[in-house]
Computed example of a mutant assay.
Amino acid sequence: MRGALVTGASRGIGRAAAIALSGRGERVAVHYGRAREEAERTLSLLHGEGHVLVGGDLSDPEAARRIVEEAEAGLGQVNVLVNNAGIAPGPATDHRVDEVDYATWQQRVARMLAVDLTAPANLSYLVARSLIARDAPGVIVNVGSRGAFRGEPGAPAYAAAKAGLHALGQSMAVALAPHGIAVASVAPGFVATERQQEKLTGADGDALRAQSPFGRVGTAEEIADAILYLTSPGAQWASGTILDLNGASHLRS
């Protein structure tokens, strides 16, 4: 039975991915940053047994090491890594260049890059090296963003981090293929997670839904379905891909 570490699994896409992976029979390490109660709720929704909670700030390299070690100890092994945890654009994280002061710019850019890019890079390294040491196949899936391609003027570091995450995934895909490890990314558009409900029910809701010709936004379960495919043993040939999941709201050449 494979073990899967899903970061940022206390809600949203991470929770949906953890549930989907457990439904396939995998044992899951549910990672959370601060929302332990929400992570425990995720744990209660998982199928099967043998799942574990792991908590900590992934931007701390030593905490990242501990989280991987705890996941491996609790699950027996980690074969699948889903790098989902991240800081999304919002009132507390936005840093529009023509609005914020320099101190705010520095703090928010540094924090977003640390969590959304450096942390998954460190986790990918740690999980990959463990797989290589055990001569075991595995898969890493990064949760990127449509914003990497269209830009995020309110939170440019978010777009930069997600673009970097996509590039990291492709570089790792080439580096790790000789070891039987696949790496892919998904690039969601706007998704109706818990933290986005205020936007969807507010004045901007209709405009957000109108971004897609389907007239709606995505669901966490749709993103989880794609993650479920990319982490399946039959998807190794998709290594290196960046899968757009935005309902045709942004088309890239």
Rank of each mutant, 00 (worst) to 15 (best):
residue 1 M to L: 12
residue 8 G to L: 04
residue 10 S to L: 03
residue 12 G to R: 03
residue 23 G to K: 03
residue 24 R to S: 08
residue 25 G to L: 06
residue 32 Y to L: 06
residue 32 Y to A: 08
residue 34 R to H: 11
residue 42 T to A: 03
residue 43 L to Y: 12
residue 45 L to K: 12
residue 45 L to R: 10
residue 50 G to L: 01
residue 51 H to D: 02
residue 51 H to T: 07
residue 52 V to P: 02
residue 53 L to T: 03
residue 59 S to E: 06
residue 60 D to V: 04
residue 62 E to D: 14
residue 65 R to K: 15
residue 65 R to H: 13
residue 66 R to V: 00
residue 67 I to V: 15
residue 71 A to L: 02
residue 74 G to M: 12
residue 79 N to Q: 12
residue 82 V to G: 08
residue 84 N to P: 14
residue 85 A to T: 07
residue 86 G to P: 10
residue 89 P to W: 11
residue 94 D to P: 04
residue 96 R to C: 09
residue 102 Y to N: 01
residue 104 T to R: 11
residue 108 R to Y: 06
residue 109 V to Y: 11
residue 112 M to F: 03
residue 115 V to D: 05
residue 115 V to W: 09
residue 116 D to A: 07
residue 117 L to N: 08
residue 119 A to F: 06
residue 126 L to S: 08
residue 131 L to A: 12
residue 131 L to E: 09
residue 133 A to T: 07
residue 134 R to V: 00
residue 138 G to S: 10
residue 140 I to A: 03
residue 141 V to D: 02
residue 142 N to A: 04
residue 144 G to F: 04
residue 145 S to Q: 08
residue 147 G to S: 11
residue 148 A to G: 15
residue 157 A to G: 13
residue 157 A to D: 15
residue 157 A to C: 06
residue 161 A to M: 08
residue 162 K to I: 00
residue 164 G to Q: 10
residue 168 L to G: 05
residue 170 Q to F: 03
residue 172 M to D: 00
residue 174 V to N: 06
residue 176 L to D: 01
residue 178 P to A: 00
residue 180 G to V: 02
residue 181 I to L: 01
residue 182 A to N: 02
residue 183 V to S: 11
residue 188 P to R: 10
residue 189 G to Q: 03
residue 194 E to L: 04
residue 194 E to Q: 10
residue 195 R to S: 14
residue 197 Q to C: 11
residue 203 A to V: 14
residue 205 G to C: 09
residue 210 A to S: 15
residue 212 S to M: 08
residue 215 G to C: 12
residue 224 A to W: 04
residue 225 D to S: 15
residue 226 A to K: 02
residue 229 Y to P: 00
residue 233 P to R: 05
residue 234 G to D: 14
residue 235 A to W: 02
residue 241 T to S: 15
residue 245 L to K: 03
residue 248 A to P: 08
residue 250 H to F: 15
residue 252 R to P: 00
